[in-house]
Structures are given as C-alpha cells and as structure tokens.
Design a protein around this nucleic acid. Sequence first.
DNA 1: CGGTCGATACACT
DNA 2: GTGTATCGACCGT
Length: 226
Amino acid sequence: MNASQPTGAPQPTPVREVLSADPRYVAPLLLGAVLTHKSPAGTVSVRITEVEAYLGPHDSLHPDPGSHTFRGLTPRNAPMFGPAGHLYVYFTYGMHYCANIVCGPEGVASALLLRAGEVVAGQDLALARRPASKTAVDLASGPARLATALGLTTADSGRDALKAPFALELPATPASAISAGPRVGVAGAGGTHEYPWRFWMTGDPTVSRYKAAKSKAITGKSASTQ
DNA sequence: CGGTCGATACACT
DNA sequence: GTGTATCGACCGT
C-alpha cells in the first residue's frame, strides 16, 4: 500500500487495474489507447479504434461458445487465464496472427481482440510489414492487419503489453462517440448473442468493414455496417 | 463498392 | 479429419 502520495489530487487508476475488469466494460476505455511495440526493426504505435470482447468459461450467465476458452484451458489459450494486460496472440487460417489484450482478474480468461487501429508512429515499418496496404488507413484496419503492422506473432503470446518492448497508454479522456454491435466472423451463438461484443469509435475510417460470420447469414440487412 | 473464393497450417476432437 | 476471432485478388455492378 503506500505512503508516498502527496495527498490531494485524485490519482489515475493504474492501467492493469483498469484492464482487470469485464472486457465489455473495459472496451470503451481501451478505444483510443496507443499500443507500442519496439523491435530491432524499429517502433510501431497503433491507436486502437475497434475491439471485440471474448469471455471465459467462468461466465455461466453469458456463455461464450465463440471464445477460444469456451472449452477450458489449452496450451494455446493459456495466456487468457493469466493476468490482465498480457497479450494473447493466436495463428489462424494458416497465415494470419490476431492479438488480444487479456482482461479480468487472473483465472477468468477473458480478453479483447484488437480488431483495428490507426498507425500513429512507424508508418514506414508498418508498410514494410504490410506491403499490400494501399493507404495509411488500411495499415491496421483488421485484426490480422493490426497484428502484422505491430510485428506480433505467437512468439509474443503471453508477454506483458505493459512492459518493454511493449507499452500501452490509455487515453486521457474516454472516446466521445462509441458504437457497439454484433461480432465479426464468429459463427453460431457466439456471434448472435443479444448483448454487444464489438465496440468501435464511431465514424473512424480505420474501423474494419463489417462482415457477417460465414455460413447461415441472415438475409436482409443487419445493423450498421461499418 | 460489394460479393465470392482460394490460400494455408495449426489446434483441437 | 475438421474448422478456423482473415485477407486480398478477382470480377460484376
């Protein structure tokens, strides 16, 4: 506990403490945060504009079959059971990496998938990592794009995003306009549950285009396509 | 701008 | 063996 506080002014809540809550609560606080990764190749920073919540098997009220932790602990998903603020990076579709920030107290296994962001530092290096990018906007506008732009792979899974070579800075003031909606790319109940999973900064150009999960698409139009 | 489809390797059953 | 928390190329409008 402490003693070294000068009294008076309220202290900001430490980042890890903020992240140690339910990801659906953390999500709006993480939008606008800047995640930095320093590597031998250089430094890239991304301002997060879109995230998606995944719960652990602890939440019997809100079972989450779309979560990698739905069936319990495995070697791959182990970081999600660890402390908040660590990275959970997985490999998918035979060629892509996606990165999450672990949320909740240790043992709870929830996380926020980093779905999109704006590269605010190291654009040259991000472009070198993502030569397919046509504009600055699509450097990190998608979960695999964001992970690639930051140079993240499964080698980084389990590492602490709050310590070097990483850094995570929360916005001083919460984002002014936030939208919420259904998940992207997750089939089954996990994609169609009645409460919001995906959060994004309203109108931000880097937010990934909405694409419904494969298989039984509901015909007709769903909510806001952004 | 929007829909379709192939790529590709790994975790888990 | 099966399915994947995706991307980008290609093609039609």
